[in-house]
Amino acid sequence: MPPGQAPALLQPFASLQPAPAETPAAPPKARLKRPTTFNEYLRDVGDVVHTGAVRAAASDDNTDFYTVALTQEALRPGTVYADPYGHVLMLVHREPEVDGKPGVFLAVDAEPDGSITRKRFWRGNFLFVHDPALGSSGFKRFRPIVRDRNGPLRRLANAEIAKNPNYGDFSLDPSQMKVEDFYDRMDDVMSPDPLDPVKAMSDAIASLHEQVKTRVTSVENGRKYQEKKPGEIAMPNGPSIFQTTGAWEDYSTPARDFRLLIAIDVVRGFPDRFARRAARYAVPAGKSVESVKGELQGVLTSELASRKITYTRSDGSPWTLSLKDVLDRMTDFEMAYNPNDCAELRWAARDSTDEASTCKRHAPQAQRAKMSSDYRAWFRERHWPTRS
């Protein structure tokens, strides 16, 4: 008897049997909704575009970006910088060296709290390390896409970019440089002629000042958020304090403070750096390297005391700090990134001082315990942790 056919005795009743079930048709695929506003577009790409794509290996041909040579011609506006710890900056302008004053590359950078800032190239903003776990950092450009005759679209390989007269700026050299060599090379690119040592150090101090002023905005954004939503912000565990989602990502400052500590190291060490590369500078006739180094120490002390920033305390009142104050509190900035702390603590105000008298918020003890554990060593040793 064929499958599905009723026996002869039951055939009169066959019409009463339920019809064989048919396989239901697959529902039509939902069509993706095209964004109608720029904000909708940002939400769509935010789930698929991330900074890891920019840190792909420099030798890889199948990537969206390629590593460029460290020359003024290659480092033109639109070039991006892959920070090893997550940020991507884009070059927008180059100011040339003038009368011994250092040249500078200017870039823009977006922060999780929604702010967009202009930053100058220097060691405090553009971090450079070699660590396979972090990918390939450095300057990169979008990889060209071409269509061969009667063929599909494809990316140009690194070797093709190097030979192409319209580009010719691919280079693996930056990915093979030691850290000090990278920054020395960038100094030479920005300022080909010998520098006035005092102007060069003043420029480094100005860069630090700019970086601290940017932090004022970040801490203030966190203070305003806590005024509107006074609940506790959850703190991630381990390396996730540097890169996560939600309010902690938006209003904490561990990555910014990590960079700030490096920037402080750069400024404090500038006189020694001058002595190491004295041939790079225009040492005044009749003066020794050691005497100029001593002058730089004096200028450093004076400028740190004269440059100021002002932040808003918990009661809305302003409080002014000098850069010297910030440097004196350097070790306390190893634990000043928690948005559950008051603004005074985030600026490392000491207990029982007038500055700290307006503080009304403290991070939970459990969070403070984590911050003072091996987390603090990451900042003290300037060693960014990698995820296991």
Rank of each mutant, 00 (worst) to 15 (best):
A82K: 00
P84T: 06
Y85V: 05
G86W: 02
V88Q: 04
L89H: 07
L91W: 00
L91A: 12
V92Q: 12
V92F: 07
V92I: 12
H93S: 12
R94E: 13
E95I: 06
D99C: 08
D99L: 09
D99H: 07
D99F: 02
K101H: 13
K101N: 15
P102G: 12
G103C: 07
F105A: 11
L106V: 05
V108E: 15
D109A: 10
A110P: 02
A110S: 13
E111M: 13
E111C: 08
E111D: 13
E111S: 12
P112H: 09
D113H: 01
S115D: 15
S115N: 14
I116W: 03
T117C: 01
K119C: 10
R120A: 15
F121D: 04
W122S: 06
W122T: 00
G124N: 05
G124R: 00
N125Y: 03
N125H: 05
F126Y: 05
F126H: 03
F126E: 10
F128V: 01
D131L: 06
D131K: 00
D131Q: 05
P132S: 10
L134E: 12
G135V: 01
S136E: 13
S137C: 15
S137K: 00
G138P: 04
F139M: 07
F139T: 02
K140C: 14
F142P: 13
I145G: 09
I145P: 04
I145Y: 06
I145T: 07
I145Q: 08
V146Y: 03
V146E: 14
R147W: 04
R149I: 14
R149E: 15
G151T: 06
G151V: 07
G151H: 02
P152T: 10
L153R: 00
L153Y: 02
R154S: 11
R154K: 07
R155V: 11
R155A: 14
A157T: 07
N158S: 10
A159M: 07
E160I: 03
E160Q: 13
K163P: 00
N164S: 13
N164H: 08
N164M: 01
N164D: 15
N164P: 05
P165F: 03
P165L: 07
N166H: 03
Y167R: 03
Y167D: 14
G168M: 04
G168V: 02
G168W: 00
D169N: 08
D169Y: 03
F170T: 07
L172E: 15
L172F: 05
L172H: 04
D173N: 06
P174E: 12
P174N: 11
P174A: 13
S175G: 11
S175T: 02
M177Q: 09
M177C: 03
M177F: 08
K178V: 06
K178L: 14
K178M: 13
K178C: 05
V179H: 08
